[in-house]
């Protein structure tokens, strides 16, 4: 796996697993209509972490109902279904309150958690996104910048002592990304996010 920070690209010839295939299938439809960025646990999994996940978290920019409806219909045509509701107008309204999920019809896992961008950090994830080029597929995947991803994962951990963090998959996801990509990370940027999220204590543990 090669990371080119300047070009904001990661190139991999990985053998695709079921979660990768599901994500590619979904994104191939979505990207005809909108920009997107993948965040959270699946970023670590895509980049080699050895764990599965029931869901893939994906952020999309604000859009009007007409565009959302087009996506909804196209997903249904391609054997995806919205777990929350089969009515696109209801699904669109829900986005103001929480994420909605799409899975392959009849099979609730894995599913795509589809969220609307509502704050500056999420905008930053989209604007600074990295392209993951998969060798055996024509579709690329766009993921959150690694520095943001690592600090964000640390922010999800309970703010307690070492014992409290010691059963946390989020810390482990951050550890994987940090260990593998350490030489290519922009440390200034990473420290900026560590301070922004107030995760200095976790950051110390991450470097050990």
């Amino acid at each position: 796996m090669d990371y080119n920070a300047q070009k904001k690209e990661i190139y991999t010839r990985k053998v695709l697993n079921e979660l990768d295939k599901f994500t590619l299938e979904f994104v191939k439809i979505l990207e005809k209509f909108t920009d997107y960025v993948i965040v959270s646990g699946y970023v670590s999994i895509l980049l080699g972490r050895t764990r599965a996940s029931e869901d893939v978290d994906l952020l999309v920019p604000e859009m009007n109902f007409e565009k959302f409806d087009e996506i909804f219909v196209e997903l249904e045509k391609n054997n995806f279904e919205c777990i929350n509701t089969s009515i696109s107008k209801d699904a669109f309204s829900m986005l103001d309150y929480h994420s909605i999920a799409f899975s392959r019809a009849g099979m609730p896992v894995p599913h795509m958690e589809f969220k609307k961008i509502i704050n500056d950090i999420q905008k930053e994830a989209l604007n600074g996104k990295l392209k993951v080029v998969l060798d055996k597929d024509t579709t690329n995947l766009y993921i959150s910048p690694l520095e943001l991803q690592i600090a964000y994962k640390l922010s999800l951990i309970s703010k307690g002592d070492f014992e409290e963090i010691s059963s946390d998959k989020d810390f482990e996801d951050a550890k994987h990304l940090y260990t593998y990509f350490r030489d290519g990370l922009n440390m200034k940027k990473l420290i900026y996010y560590v301070n922004l999220f107030k995760v200095q204590e976790m950051w110390k543990w991450l470097q050990k």
Binding site: T12, K14, V15, L16, N17, E18, L19, I45, G48, R49, T50, R51, A52
Partner: peptide
């Protein structure tokens, strides 16, 4: 490495 990862996840 990804073959091992895919076996586990799949």
């Amino acid at each position: 490495w990804s073959k091992g990862q895919a076996d586990l996840i799949d």
